[in-house]
Design a protein around this nucleic acid. Structure first.
Length: 305
DNA sequence: ACCCAGGCATTGG
DNA sequence: CCAATGCATGGG
């Protein structure tokens, strides 16, 4: 078992604890990700190799520096580079928050939230496939049920490896979910409908038929157009793919009940609002609507709203 | 106890 | 066009 240490400089400000906490939904562990004893850990699926990444901060929020430890069998320099790049992506270390903060300063509610969560970057999923499946699993149900179902899926179909007696999981590969039957997936407390969606998307990803492999070159609108072709993916899910899977800065999950409620509470005196109102209203955050959304959700999870 | 939770596609009025 | 339907847990 090899052990490699490498350092990573995020774009300041960067707060590892907040960013990892967002990843784990402010719990010690959520599915593939954990934040324990000041270390963010995740099992990376680097082609055939499984590598455990363990990340801690050795800098400050304003002058951030991360120490990334990689553990696995026969690690090469390529593995080290790939692992480091994967960690940087998962933690969104390269995001430039300063322009967003400049914008938020003119929005009192958001300004307070940005101050409270200064240095929070937006974590990404390891792949568009992962973003799609996680979003499907979160459709319509409460966050606590979604957490149970997502964890079940990851622990049943994900890749597992133990380190120091603890099990770590990488997100299931498309082929693992593609070969599961709808009945198998229903064991994970999925509805028939969602089990079909998951299986269909896994097969599209496995066979390369969903156009999921070349989304990086497409515009936001083209991505939405492409992924909503998949059964089970509507505009809400497509927006979360832009946010979590592709890291686009100006996405807005219209249709999201929680987002409507947060905005209603902060800006409309608790008066319920519709997506038709939220769309034009969100123009004030453009071109950083993704970050605004993430900070608003974080405020909700932290009980500020 | 009861109702509601970070949607979606389908079916029936 | 509108309403109902289905996965299940925990908090209000």
């Amino acid at each position: 078992m090899d052990r490699l240490i490498t350092n990573l400089q995020p774009a300041p400000p960067f707060d590892l604890e907040l960013t990892a906490a967002y990843h784990t939904y402010f719990r010690g562990r959520y599915g593939t990700d954990s934040w324990v004893d000041g270390r963010y850990r995740r099992l990376l699926d680097l082609g055939p190799k499984l590598v455990l990444a363990s990340v801690r901060t050795v800098g400050t929020v304003e002058e951030p520096e991360l120490e990334v430890e990689l553990r696995g069998e026969n690690l090469t320099q390529q593995d080290a580079a790939a692992g480091k790049a994967q960690v940087a992506w998962l933690l969104g270390t390269q995001q430039e928050l300063t322009p967003f903060y400049d914008l938020a300063r003119r929005d009192p509610a958001l300004a307070a939230i940005c101050e409270r969560f200064h240095g929070l970057h937006l974590p990404h999923t390891s792949s568009v496939f992962e973003a799609l499946i996680l979003a499907i699993l979160g459709q319509q149900i409460s966050t606590s049920v979604a957490r149970i179902v997502r964890t079940l899926l990851i622990e049943t179909y994900g890749l597992r490896q133990a380190f120091d007696g603890d099990d770590y999981y990488a997100f299931p590969r498309p082929e693992a979910l593609a070969s599961a039957s709808v009945e198998d997936l229903r064991q994970l407390k999925l509805s028939y409908r969602k089990a079909e969606y998951v299986q269909g998307i896994a097969r599209a990803a496995r066979d390369g038929t969903g156009g999921l492999d070349c989304l990086n070159e497409k515009s936001d609108e083209e991505v939405v157009q492409q992924v909503t072709q998949l059964r089970g993916v509507g505009k809400w899910t497509a927006q979360w793919v832009l946010v979590r899977g592709l890291g686009r800065p100006d996405a807005l999950p219209l249709g999201d009940l929680a987002l409507r409620r947060i905005v209603s509470s902060l800006y409309f005196d608790g008066e319920p609002i519709t997506d038709e109102q939220l769309g034009p209203f969100s123009a004030r955050w453009s071109p950083w609507r993704t970050y605004a959304t993430i900070y608003l959700f974080t405020a909700l999870r932290a009980g500020m709203v």
